[in-house]
């Protein structure tokens, strides 16, 4: 986008190449840096496909953070106590922050903020499918914290060592904050699980509904994952989808036992030989359907996002007008 490019400051402007002879040398330097586990920084030369992959992944990640505010914000006004309400507000605010860290990281690759939001609003860029499921009861807030944030952490911890510096740094910050998200969810579910039979049933129902979608958060199985091999070679990704999914299952089973809740999978059992839990087949048709836009809340999430953006326009305009006026008077005084 022309405006975004024109606005780029020199120190963040991406290197835009100057002929093939020079590029060959740059490419060697890039490969060597990745091989040596060094970080690639914004103004370094990088292959176009590396840049495009990062923009796609970081944008999708940023969009997920801000769309992810909706299902939980749904319960803020109905939180059962002031303590729970304050916690939930802090968590939802953190997710907004995560979105901002990630949009900033994407911008260092030369893609402007408004271009990214445009692509989200017009459906040209995606966000995680998990946020297209509804939060039907208060227990869903707990299940999201425990399972959805839990799966996100499993995915994100290795990203702290991603080869692209700004993305890795954003992930370090995010991972620090995520651990509160997961623990508050676990604590919330525990309180319900140990509560009245109705509360216990509500917690179990939430876990039953969120378990499988959470496993889908790791993406399609390794043999169907389009971008995985290249991303691993570039050290954007450090572990395969299936590896991370298995790690998550292994972590969750004992946690569910401590909660006094069950996971909705009859095939879940310890495999002594493998040293892992075996688990049942994932319904990938559901995953692809939700991704295509046919999940329970796809329409609602994107409509709400667009409305929030449009209704905030006057605030952005007023702030810009104020800033312009302020700098004028400042200029005449000077």
């Amino acid at each position: 986008m022309a405006t975004a490019a024109a606005q780029k400051t020199d120190h963040t402007a991406p290197y835009d190449g100057d002929g093939t002879a020079a590029t060959a040398g740059y490419e060697r330097a890039f490969d060597a840096a990745v091989a040596a586990d060094e970080r690639i920084e914004p103004r370094d030369w990088m292959p176009d496909a590396y840049r495009a992959t990062l923009v796609r992944q970081i944008a999708q990640h940023a969009h997920s953070e801000i769309i992810g505010m909706q299902p939980e914000a749904n319960w803020i006004t109905r939180a059962p106590s002031l303590r729970r309400k304050a916690i939930l507000m802090a968590k939802v605010q953190d997710e907004a922050g995560h979105g901002l860290y990630l949009y900033s990281a994407a911008e260092t690759l030369g893609t402007g903020r408004d271009e990214l939001l445009d692509k989200l609003h017009s459906g040209r860029q995606k966000y995680s499918s998990i946020f297209n499921y509804p939060t039907l009861t208060w227990a869903d807030v707990g299940a999201i914290g425990w399972l959805v944030d839990g799966a996100a952490i499993t995915n994100q911890v290795p990203l702290c060592r991603c080869s692209y510096g700004p993305y890795a740094r954003a992930m370090v910050r995010i991972c620090k904050e995520e651990s509160f998200h997961q623990r508050q969810g676990y604590e919330l579910l525990l309180a319900l699980s140990r509560g009245t039979p109705e509360q216990h049933a509500m917690a179990q129902d939430a876990v039953d509904r969120w378990w499988w979608p959470s496993l889908m958060m790791f993406g399609p199985p390794d043999d169907e994952s389009q971008h995985s091999a290249q991303s691993m070679a570039w050290k954007i990704k450090r572990h395969s989808n299936d590896e991370l999914r298995q790690r998550f299952v292994d972590i969750c089973v004992p946690q569910a036992e401590s909660l006094g809740l069950t996971l909705p999978d009859p095939d879940l059992k310890w495999n002594e030989e493998q040293g892992h839990y075996d688990f049942g087949a994932i319904d990938w048709t559901e995953f692809w359907e939700v991704l295509k836009g046919n999940g329970p809340c796809n329409e609602q999430r994107i409509t709400q996002r667009r409305r929030a953006h449009e209704e905030g326009a006057w605030v952005r305009e007023a702030a810009a007008a104020y800033a312009a006026k302020h700098s004028e008077t400042g200029a005449t005084r000077a």
Binding site: G97, Y101, S104, E107, R173, R316, A323, S327
Partner: peptide
């Protein structure tokens, strides 16, 4: 890190909310 803001005053407030929660 970085952020967008219309002027320095807003940038400070946004930075407080974003980086020192």
């Amino acid at each position: 890190g970085s952020l967008h803001a219309p002027d320095a005053e807003f940038a400070l407030r946004n930075a407080r909310d974003l980086y020192t929660r």
